[in-house]
Amino acid sequence: MKIERLHHIAIICSDYEKSKRFYTEVLGFEISHEVYRAERDSYKLDLSLNGVYLIELFSFPNPPQRVSRPEATGLRHISFGVNDVDGTRDFLASRGVDSEPVRIDEFTGKRFTFFSDPDNLPIEIYEI
C-alpha cells in the first residue's frame, strides 16, 4: 500500500448554514460543490483551499453529539499551517472566534494554538 496524500476530511455539523459561513467566510475555504440529498435530508458541501479539495461538510438530521474535550478516542483535531500565528489569531478574534494562548511545540520550536468550529471541533493553526 502506498498512500499518496490526504484526500479530504469529513465533518458532520449540527447547523449547516452556520458551519458553512464559518468555513467559508471565516476560514476562507471556497465552495467546490454543494448538493442536497433529499433521500437523506442532508447537505454535502465540498470545500477547497488554494485550489485543493480538503473538507466535506455534511448535515444530517439530529446527529449525536461527539465528545471532543477532554481528550477522547477518535479524531483529535484538524490543523492548518499558517505563516503568521499572531495575525491569524487577530483575524479570528475580529470575526468573534476565540483562540487559546499561543504555545510552542517542544519538538519543533514552532508556534501553534487552537480554536473551535461552531460544533466545538478543535482546530489548530500551526506555524509553517
Rank of each mutant, 00 (worst) to 15 (best):
M1H: 13
K2Y: 05
H7W: 11
A10W: 00
A10H: 03
I11R: 03
I12Y: 06
I12M: 08
S14A: 13
E17M: 06
E17R: 08
E17P: 00
K18F: 00
S19G: 06
K20F: 05
K20A: 07
R21Q: 09
R21G: 05
E25G: 06
E25Y: 00
E25F: 00
V26L: 06
V26N: 09
L27R: 01
L27A: 12
F29R: 14
F29G: 06
F29A: 07
E30C: 06
I31C: 04
S32N: 15
V35H: 14
V35K: 11
Y36Q: 11
Y36P: 02
R37H: 13
R37Q: 12
E39P: 01
R40W: 08
D41T: 12
Y43I: 08
Y43P: 02
K44S: 15
K44E: 15
K44F: 13
L45P: 08
L47Y: 03
L47I: 07
S48G: 09
S48T: 11
L49V: 10
N50M: 03
G51Y: 12
G51N: 14
G51D: 12
I55Y: 06
L57K: 02
F58C: 05
F58G: 10
F58K: 13
P61L: 04
N62K: 14
N62D: 14
S68H: 08
A72W: 11
G74Y: 00
G74L: 02
I78G: 01
S79Y: 00
D84K: 02
V85D: 10
D86K: 15
D90C: 09
F91Y: 10
F91P: 01
L92G: 13
S94F: 09
G96M: 00
D98L: 07
S99A: 15
S99P: 00
E100K: 04
R103I: 07
R103Q: 15
I104G: 03
E106K: 14
T108I: 09
G109I: 06
K110I: 11
K110R: 15
K110M: 12
R111V: 03
F112V: 02
F112G: 01
F114L: 06
F114P: 00
D119F: 02
N120M: 07
N120T: 05
N120W: 06
N120G: 05
L121E: 01
I123G: 07
E124N: 10
Y126M: 07
Y126N: 08
Y126R: 08
I128M: 10
I128P: 09
